[in-house]
Amino acid sequence: MNCRIFRENILEYQDAKPEDPLVREMKQHLEVCPDCSGFLLQWQWVSRLAKGLPRVEAPGDFEIRLRKRLREEQAEVRSGWFSFIPVTWRYAMVGAMSLCICFSALYLYQPGGGGGSIDRTASQAKAIPVEPGQPQGERPDSAVEDPGAYPAALPVSTRTAGYGGPRNPGEWPPDIEVHGEGGEYVEYLLKGTGQDEIVVRMPKTIRVRPPGENDPSYFRYISH
């Protein structure tokens, strides 16, 4: 037994039974080591000081204050919003409100929700191979069966087709000749200011010749 081992095991010395071999060794060490004897006395003194600290008590009105606080907390819980509605109903209401929000969001973001704007992208255009004998640049009149199959917004340039600025979406400029260059067609769904929708089928590459004028703005529409 040396001083280091003694000090490391000092807790055991206090707690272990006297017949414990370790305790016996420690006692033998104490007889020959005044330093460790002093250390032990000091150690016990610290414990005695801590044990001698006076007991602190709760204030006399502790229970009254606690009762008051519990009542306040319970009242707070009871007076919460919708507290008069049974809990199961509250869950049902929350579920219904969530569904309403989801459906509203879906309605607002569904294709064509903006009304009057052409909201398909050319990059999502549906490419259809040119059928032999089919007139190119044809403007179909029928409404589209499946609007979801079409791009969400046309490029800005296609919104202003025709003379003098924007025309009604879907309205093909009557005074422009369109000639297909072969290859593929592109179908655009154009949405009117009302609920009407129209499909415009045009070649991927077209040439526009404005009659009698040489307006360079037409050439913005040549390719998509």
């Binding site: 008590e57 709760a58 502790f62 229970e63």
Partner: peptide, 15 residues
Amino acid sequence: LVSKYKNPITNFITR
């Protein structure tokens, strides 16, 4: 339970 433990717990937390 409160009256049994209020003093020990107060003492413990104070220390």
